[in-house]
Design a protein around this nucleic acid. Structure first.
Lengths: 143, 143
DNA sequence: ATATTAAAGGATATTTTTGTCCTTTATAAA
DNA sequence: TTTATAAAGGACAAAAATATCCTTTAATAT
């Protein structure tokens, strides 16, 4: 569904969003430990998120990553889009180059319904929604 | 969503299912031409499908691949399962090893709804359904 | 029987994704 | 101002997915 990179990215964003204090910073080590991901690889992903303006960073002592925007206004779809692009939202299920309403692949219509469901879910689920559920202990970021 | 291998597999199965005459055989060349896939790679995929008993094959002159079972009773889910395994049906959206109703990841419940939708679609869409739509010209296997 | 055809199978190559390591740059604290 | 800290960036490595090539096996037709 999502690339491994994208899964790490979502996890990382949720973790940072779930930190108390809102704009508190969290370092690479903390993040990768919290989401159980390889540190160096996570660094690259965080860089991508910073470039996509989903995350912000500060170098030096007490530096780290933080979220600038209101987490209530950041939706999972933005993270997925930033990392995996929009093929998941628009691509043909069977990989056809030219697949559209006018020239549909054999599963186009049925698949579109599922994809719209997924897209809708991602576009309406905010980082705050999921971070809150982590904070109240009703969901988890790792084992 | 699906691996490229799986997409080729679905396309190939639909193509063979859409052949007139039902149990007619189609060769590797025809199939890979029809679905616009690399021939040698497609050969490997067809082998997998044969091993999974979704497809049957005959060597020698006039040999080729054909579908044994009633295409009305073969569902897309079986193809996906045979090639990509069942991670798409059961795996955690965020890649967590231990993700369940009791110990859900932050998107578990919302994602489950989407996944159930996908699963339901795949389990109820038969090869005959989609092959028919190709045959009447309302859907296409390539550009 | 022999030749031809087409799938099966094994080995290998290429590409993409995932992952690591090390140096450079920016920031802050001493 | 110097030192410590932590992200940024570049180069490289490993693993997995995708793809090719060539030989072997099975079936048919001559």
């Amino acid at each position: 569904m999502f690339s491994k990179t994208c899964k790490y990215a979502i996890n990382a964003m949720i973790y940072v969003a779930s930190l108390p204090g809102g704009n508190e910073r969290s370092g690479l080590k903390d993040i990768s430990k919290a989401i159980n991901s390889p540190e160096a690889f996570t660094a690259k992903i965080l860089q991508q998120l910073v470039k996509s303006d989903l995350l912000h960073s500060m170098k030096g002592p007490n530096g780290g990553f933080y979220i600038h925007r209101d987490t209530h206004q950041i939706f999972l779809s933005e993270i997925v889009q930033a990392i995996d692009g929009d093929l998941i939202f628009t691509g043909c299920a069977l990989g056809l180059e030219k697949c559209s309403e006018d020239h549909p692949c054999p599963v186009h219509h049925k698949f579109k319904a599922v994809r719209d469901h997924l897209t809708g879910m991602l576009m309406t689920t905010s980082l705050k929604d999921v971070a809150d559920s982590v904070n109240v202990g009703s969901s988890f970021l790792k084992i």
